[in-house]
Design a binder for these strands. Structure first.
Length: 421
RNA sequence: GGAGAGAUGGCCGAGCGGUUUAAGGCGGCGGUCUUGAAAACCGUUGAUGCUUAAAACAUCCGGGGGUUCGAAUCCCUCUCUCUCCGCCA
């Protein structure tokens, strides 16, 4: 949620900034609702104050007639309060619903652009590998060598599900451990293992709800939702808390499965393991003060890239333009790996700075010292990394002419004596 | 799933219809004393809204609803926690 005071005090500025996102936002409606809410709130508070005073007078009064008169007076006031409160809560509900659908304001140095075609490639890392044969796709290798079973995945669960087998199942498990170990040992993150199912408040807190409910899986019976990313449970660990500044920055690394309906892209990317309804991911989450958030974003990107450097995977860093920013982000960088079999750049991580947007929704604050006022923290996160696409990158970059996969050096401690899959 | 108990400020804990603008303790912060520290003593100690800020005012005793002139306190309801039993990776 953005600060409603910005709409109150700098309405034209907010409208101008929102235009850069190329989505309609109802700023004027919000302004009107806010105005009437404040007026009504003030009036109601005055009435409550009068009632309070009268009640005290009744308690002190001895004269029965005066008591009766005052009682009737309060009854009359109560009726007024009741109508005003009903009106007030109706307005507040509408205002809140509108505010929850307002995206974050873009940071001043995000390039302005309409859609993903106007994203900016910042730079390239690790040279593309040279092949003396035509590199195969991961799904060709996977099917040929019985390492990915697409048919049985569909039989068990339906389209966009698959079964990893033997060396590929082990490769994914090794990668999860390698990523977590690296972040914990070298990048100073604290490991957490969160629930895969969360209540509704969590998803409102990080910004998936109410707007994107059609992309999420839900168990109607319990009212719990399956997490689309570990960002949701990990950030919400601190929901409704006031954190001591000495604890900041908080840095968590978490492995979870992620569940997404991927409705929007039905029919697209159906080949391979690039886009499934269930995938594994190691996620990095940071909670910081506002003044350190920018630096922490770049540190986060470095931590993400370090994994790819240790695996020697060619990749590039892309700065996301205003029109392609996600709903909650004020600034975002994507990390994309190169898959030579598919001849495609694949997004393996999205690193975002949310400013105070999520903190305001989830009510996460910090105090500079004992007597200072609580302020909203800033939240950040990035994948570190998404497993299927890193798998694709390793399979396709490390393949041999006869369809085997060489194990990258940094993964060898996780494979024992094996040299190939 | 069955039976019972409970939910109060950072923590513990009183409070059972109107001096509660929530007692008392612990912890935290500031001070006195001290070479320094401890102890002791004194003071202070939440959130939200409105407000340039402060003051004032309003709201907050798990959530929602009700009774009453007035609710932390009474009633209904939901959620959660704990104890015991049953079931189960």
């Amino acid at each position: 949620m953005i600060d409603i005071k910005l709409i109150r005090e700098q309405r034209e500025f907010v409208k101008k900034e929102m235009e850069k996102l190329f989505v309609p936002v109802q700023i004027d409606e919000i302004y009107e609702f806010d105005e009437s809410k404040r007026k009504l709130l003030y009036d109601t508070e005055c009435l409550r104050n009068t009632r309070k005073i009268l009640s005290k007078e009744i308690a002190a009064e001895k004269n029965e007639e005066v008591i009766l008169a005052k009682k009737n007076e309060v009854k009359r006031i109560n009726e007024l309060i009741k109508t005003q409160e009903d009106e007030l809560s109706a307005i507040e509900q509408k205002l809140n619903a509108l505010m929850l659908n307002v995206p974050n304001l873009p940071d001043s140095d995000v390039p302005v652009g309409r859609d993903e075609t106007e994203n900016v490639v910042v730079s390239y890392f690790n040279a593309k590998k040279k092949f003396d044969f035509k590199p195969k796709t991961h799904f060709e290798i996977g099917e040929k060598r019985d390492l990915i079973d697409f048919e049985r995945g569909v039989k068990i669960s339906g389209t966009r599900f698959y079964v990893l087998k033997k060396g590929f199942a082990k490769l994914q498990r090794a990668l999860i451990n390698f990523m977590l170990d690296t972040h914990i040992t070298y990048h100073d993150y604290e490991e957490v293992y969160p629930p895969y199912m969360v209540n509704e408040a969590c998803l409102v807190g990080t910004g998936q709800l109410p707007k994107f409910s059609d992309t999420l899986y839900k168990d109607d019976d319990s009212g719990l939702w399956f997490v689309p990313t570990a960002e949701v449970p990990v950030t919400n660990m601190y929901r409704d808390e006031i954190i001591d500044i000495k604890m900041l920055p908080i840095k968590h690394a978490a492995y979870t499965a992620c569940f997404r309906k991927e409705k929007m892209s039905a029919g697209k990317d159906t080949r391979g393991i690039k886009r499934g309804h269930q995938f594994d991911k190691v996620e990095l989450v940071k909670i910081t003060t506002p003044e350190t958030a920018k630096d922490e974003l770049f540190n986060l990107i470095n931590d993400v890239q370090d994994i790819l450097n240790r695996l020697d995977i060619p990749h590039r860093l892309v700065k996301i333009c205003t029109g392609d920013l996600s709903f909650s982000a004020k600034e975002k960088y994507d990390v994309e790996v190169y898959a030579p079999g598919m001849d495609e750049w694949l997004e393996v991580s999205s690193c975002s700075n949310f400013g105070s947007f999520q903190a305001r929704r989830a009510n996460i604050k910090f105090k500079r010292d004992k007597n200072s006022k609580a302020e909203f923290v800033n939240t950040l996160n990035g994948s570190g990394l998404a497993l299927p696409r890193v798998m694709i990158a390793i399979i396709e970059n490390y393949q041999t002419k006869d369809g085997y996969i060489r194990i990258p050096n940094s993964l060898k401690p996780y494979f024992g004596i094996e040299e190939f899959i």
